[in-house]
């Protein structure tokens, strides 16, 4: 009896903490949804900004964000996966690799404005890429690199050692084993990491502030050396820099960004679930 009461209390506390996590998120989505929905229409999504961004659409910002995210992933996914493979499959355990691992973990805790300044110094000025899609993508790419490396390393590690041993015992080389057995089974985790990285890249303002984002640019970029508008920065601009922007435009922009990020996360969850279903160990 006593145990049962204890159990109930424990469940109640767990339930409460879940509510504390879920309620603010739900409220946030509802709040933004109600306030932003009136702004959403075809012109808003596909049109150019007008009247000093007080009217018209946010199409350039949407496109800019998509470009930046694609660029960031193109850069960080191959490098991230390859370095994770090196770190967890090939590198010998020594002080150097331990330092590298520690550095990677710490990199994911670095504030994003620091990445922004780094991108400014390194890509914009040192490499002379200017404020451009290229600089912005590379900066975002570097920012999400630790996410991808950590996720990949973890999913590589989750592939049982026995599988590798069997593959090797049949005469496979190490690389064949990684390619045929380890990577395919690590894929769900790698994908999840990547998509979480994408969501992060899509939502950050600070890294693109000095490296790519245009205050107002009512046309689409023609090359990777052009500037673009981006959703998070646009939101910042119309919320703080320009007087007289109607409320619904601000919340509409926020809603678009929110829906983009949430649906990327949703894709991650579904993909993970689908791939998990297939595996049986």
């Amino acid at each position: 009896m006593n145990q049962k009461i204890k159990q109930k209390i424990a469940f109640f506390i767990l339930f409460l903490s879940i509510c504390l996590v879920v309620i603010p998120i739900v409220l946030l989505v509802i709040f933004i949804g109600i306030k932003g929905l009136p702004a959403i229409n075809w012109e808003f999504l596909t049109g150019l900004p007008k009247q000093g961004m007080r009217a018209g659409g946010i199409f350039p910002a949407i496109v800019g964000t998509v470009y930046l995210v694609i660029g960031a992933v193109l850069f960080s996914l191959p490098i991230g996966i390859l370095s994770a493979i090196y770190l967890s499959e090939y590198a010998k355990e020594n002080i150097l690799t331990r330092l590298i691992r520690l550095a990677i973990i710490n990199l994911s805790g670095v504030p994003s404005i620091v990445y922004g300044l780094f991108g400014l110094a390194f890509f914009v000025i040192f490499f002379n890429f200017g404020t451009s899609v290229l600089s912005g993508s590379l900066t975002l790419g570097i920012m999400i690199l630790p996410i991808i490396i950590t996720a990949t390393q973890e999913s590589l590690k989750s592939v049982p050692y026995a599988f590798r041993e069997v593959s090797l015992s049949l005469g496979a080389t190490k690389w064949q084993t990684i390619k045929n057995i380890v990577l395919p089974n690590a894929l769900p985790g790698i994908l999840t990491g990547t998509i979480l990285g994408i969501a992060r890249a899509a939502g950050e303002t600070a890294p693109i502030l000095f490296t790519v984002a245009a205050f107002y640019l009512p046309h689409l970029p023609k090359s990777i050396f052009d500037q673009v508008m981006a959703l998070p920065y646009h939101l910042y601009v119309i919320s703080t820099q320009i007087p007289g922007v109607p409320d619904r435009m601000r919340y509409g922009t926020a809603l678009v960004l929110l829906v983009m990020v949430l649906s990327i996360n949703l894709i991650a969850i579904i993909l993970r679930y689908q791939l998990r279903k297939k595996k049986r160990w």
Partner: peptide, 9 residues
């Protein structure tokens, strides 16, 4: 052939 069967996935 190992003691415990380990099918590959």
């Amino acid at each position: 052939v190992f003691a415990l069967p380990v099918p590959l996935p």
